[in-house]
Design a protein around this nucleic acid. Structure first.
Lengths: 352, 352
DNA sequence: GATAGAAATGTAAGCGCTTACATCTGGCGC
DNA sequence: GCGCCAGATGTAAGCGCTTACATTTCTATC
C-alpha cells in the first residue's frame, strides 16, 4: 500500500496525495476529502523511512540518560518523553551508563539515526575537563543539544538547571542556624551539579568559619541502590573518629541512609541529629522520620527544556541557559528554625 | 557526503561501497580496506533513512510502558534497553499512561515508525476483557509483540512472566503458618498479574478456611507515589472495624505503607504485625524494619524476553510463554518459620 | 595458453516519498 | 468573448541507499 495505490484509487496524482499528507494549502477541499476517504478506507499509513528520506526528519529526539533505573533520572525521562510525545515527537532512549566512552558511542549512534536533537538527562554528562566534553560540542555541531541540570558554554548547547549551589548553601546555613556544627556533606557524584552542590556546602561552612579545618566531606562510590553500603560508609566515618550530628546529602537515597545510620547509632532525629537531602523524591517519605529535602522542581525544568527545544526547532532564538531556584520541603529530619520563613525570590532566570 | 562521494574517492562503484557497508562476503579484502579508509577519512555516515527505506528496518524496537517513573517499570525499561542496545538495536520509548485509548494510539504511532517489534513492559497492557486486547492482536499482525509479566494467547504475541500466583499463594500460606489469621491483601492494579496475585491470595486463604467470610481485600487507587494516602487507606479500613495483623502487599510501595501504618498504630513488627510485599525493589530496604519481599527476578525476565525477541527476529521458533518462579527475600517484617526452608523447584518453564 | 567457473565489481532499477516546475483549469475584468 | 492570473493538479527528478543481474577479472585446469 503506497502513495501510488491511493493516488490511483482517488483518481489524482501522487503529488496531490503527498500534498494532503503534508497539509499543503493548495489542494481543493473536495479532493482533499476524497483522498482522505480513500486513505481511511484502505488503512493507508505512509512509509516513515521514505518520508524521513524526503523530509530529512522523522520527528524523533534522542534522550540520553546514564541510568534510567535511577528514580530521579527515570522521572526526568518520563516527564520529557511525555512532553515530547504531546507535540508529536518520539523519543529514542539511550541508557549509556556513566563511562565517557559509552556516552560518546551512544551519542554517535543517535546522530547516525538522524534524531532532530539530543537531550542529555542528568548533569553527569558534563565533565570537569573541557576536553571530556568535546563529544557534546561535536554532536551540537549537527543538532541542538539540550542538557538538564548542567551548563556548558558551547554553541548550540542549551541548558536548563536548578540552582543547586544556592539550595545547598542555604540548607547548610539553615542547619548551622539550627545549632549543628559538625555537619557531614555526603555525596556520590562529581558531575556538574555535584560540584556545584559541594561548593555550596563548602562556601556556607567556610563562611561561618565553622570547621576547625576543612569541612567534613565524604564521597560514596557504590551502587545507588545499596542503602546498606551507604550506612556502612557513614559508620566507618564515625569509627574513624569523625563524629557528626548533621548530614547534608546530595540525594534522597544518601539522606535515607543517613536516617538509618542515625537510628542505628542511637541518635534521636531531629533532636540530636539532622538530615537535609536533595531531590524531594518519593523516598523522602519512606523513612521515619521523613526527610527534609530540597525540591528542584524537576517537572518544571523538564517542561522548560522541552519548550526551549521546540523553540529552537522552529528557528527561534532561545536562551542558552535557564536557572530555576529550588525549594526546601521541611519534614521530620530538621528542627524548625527562624529562617524557615522563606524569603520571596525570583524562581527563574535566563541567560543568552 | 553520500555513498557516491565515497565510491568516487575510492575508485569503485556505489554497489561495492554498499557491500562493504553491509558486510557482504563478495568484496576483496583489498578494496574493502580501501573503502573503509576513505569512509574513515571522510567521516562518512550512511543515511539512516535511506538505509531504512532500502532494508525496510532501522533496527529499532518500540518499548511501551505506562509510566516509566514507576521504579519497577523504570528498572524493566532499563534492563531491556541495555540488552537491546548491546545487540545494536535502539529503543523508541513510549510512556502511554494507563488509559486504553492512549495505549492504542501509541501503539499505532510506533507501528507507523516501523519498529521491528513492540515490547509491552508491564502487565497493565493486558486487560481482562478480550475485546480490550484487540489493539495488541492487531499490532501483532504487523510485528512480533513481546509482553512482560502478562500472557496472551494470540498469534505472534510472546510472554515472559513470573509466577505471581504461586508467589503470593506461598507468601500467604507462610504468613498463616506464622500464626496470623487476619490478613489483608492490599493491591493497586487489576492488571493481568494483579489478578493472578489476588487469586493466589484468595486461594491460599480459602483453602485454609481462615476467613470467616470472604478474605479481607483492599484496592488502592491513588498515586503510586503517595505513601501517605496509602497509610490513610489502611487506617480507614481499621477505623471501619476490620482489624488486621498482617498485610500481603502487591508491591513494595504498598508494603512500605503497611509498615508505616503498623508503626503508627503501635504494633510491633514483626512480633504483632507482619508484612510481605512484592518486587523486592530498593524500597524494601528503606523502612524500618526492612520489608520481606518477593523477588520476581526482573533482570532475568528481561534478559529472557530480549533473547526470545532476537530469536524471533532471526526467524527461529520460540516458546510463546515462559514463566519464572519468584523467591521470597526475608527481612524484618516477618518472623522466621519452619516453612522457610524453600523447597527446590524448577525456576523456569516454557510453553509453545 | 585457452577456457571454464568462481570471484569481484559495476549497472541500473527500484524503495516510497517530496517538491520544483510545468500544465491545466476557471473566474474575472474589459 | 478574450486574455490574464491565481489556484489546483500533474510530471518527473530527486533523496541515498540496496540488490538482482550483467559484466569483468581472476584462478585453476588441461
Amino acid at each position: 500500500m503506497t502513495i501510488y495505490d491511493i493516488s490511483e484509487k482517488a483518481g489524482v496524482s501522487i503529488a496531490t496525495v503527498s500534498r494532503v499528507l503534508n497539509g499543503s494549502q493548495s489542494v481543493s477541499e473536495k479532493t482533499r476529502q476524497k483522498v482522505l476517504d480513500v486513505m481511511e478506507q484502505c488503512g493507508y499509513t505512509p512509509n516513515a523511512f521514505a518520508r524521513g528520506l524526503g523530509l530529512n526528519t522523522m520527528q524523533t529526539i534522542g534522550i540520553m540518560c546514564a541510568d534510567s533505573s535511577d528514580p530521579y533520572l527515570a522521572k526526568a525521562v518520563y516527564y520529557i518523553e511525555q512532553k515530547l510525545r504531546s507535540r508529536g515527537y518520539d523519543s529514542l532512549l539511550s541508557c549509556t551508563g556513566y563511562e565517557l566512552e559509552a556516552k560518546e558511542y551512544s551519542m554517535n549512534l543517535l546522530i547516525t539515526k538522524k534524531v532532530d536533537s539530543i537531550i542529555l538527562v542528568g548533569s553527569n554528562f558534563v565533565y570537569e575537563r573541557e576536553e571530556d566534553n568535546r563529544y557534546i560540542a561535536e554532536a551540537a555541531s549537527q543538532v541542538p543539544v539540550m542538557v538538564l541540570n548542567a551548563a556548558m558554554d558551547t554553541p548550540n548547547v542549551y541548558s536548563v538547571m536548578s540552582d543547586d549551589y544556592t539550595s545547598i548553601y542555604n540548607a547548610t546555613r539553615e542547619m548551622v542556624a539550627g545549632g549543628i556544627r559538625d555537619i557531614l556533606y555526603f555525596y556520590n557524584s562529581h558531575s556538574y551539579s555535584g560540584r556545584r552542590k559541594l561548593s555550596g556546602f563548602q562556601a556556607a561552612m567556610e563562611e561561618q568559619a565553622l570547621s576547625g579545618g576543612a569541612p567534613l566531606v565524604e564521597f560514596y562510590r557504590g551502587s545507588h541502590e545499596d542503602i546498606h553500603a551507604m550506612v556502612r560508609h557513614l559508620r566507618a566515618v564515625r569509627d574513624a573518629g569523625k563524629e557528626f550530628h548533621g548530614v547534608i546529602a546530595a540525594d534522597d537515597t544518601l539522606g535515607l541512609a543517613a536516617v538509618k545510620y542515625a537510628a542505628e547509632a542511637g541518635y534521636r532525629v531531629p533532636e540530636d541529629f539532622s538530615v537535609i537531602s536533595y531531590n524531594n523524591s518519593m523516598l523522602a517519605c519512606c523513612c521515619q522520620p521523613e526527610l527534609t529535602s530540597i525540591d528542584n522542581k524537576l517537572e518544571t525544568l523538564c517542561e522548560h527544556l522541552v519548550a526551549t527545544l521546540f523553540g529552537i526547532l522552529e528557528g527561534k532564538e532561545m536562551p542558552k541557559k535557564t536557572v530555576f531556584s529550588g525549594e526546601t520541603v521541611r519534614r521530620g529530619t530538621t528542627r524548625r528554625t527562624a529562617s524557615d520563613t522563606e524569603q520571596a525570590k525570583p524562581i527563574c532566570t535566563h541567560e543568552r
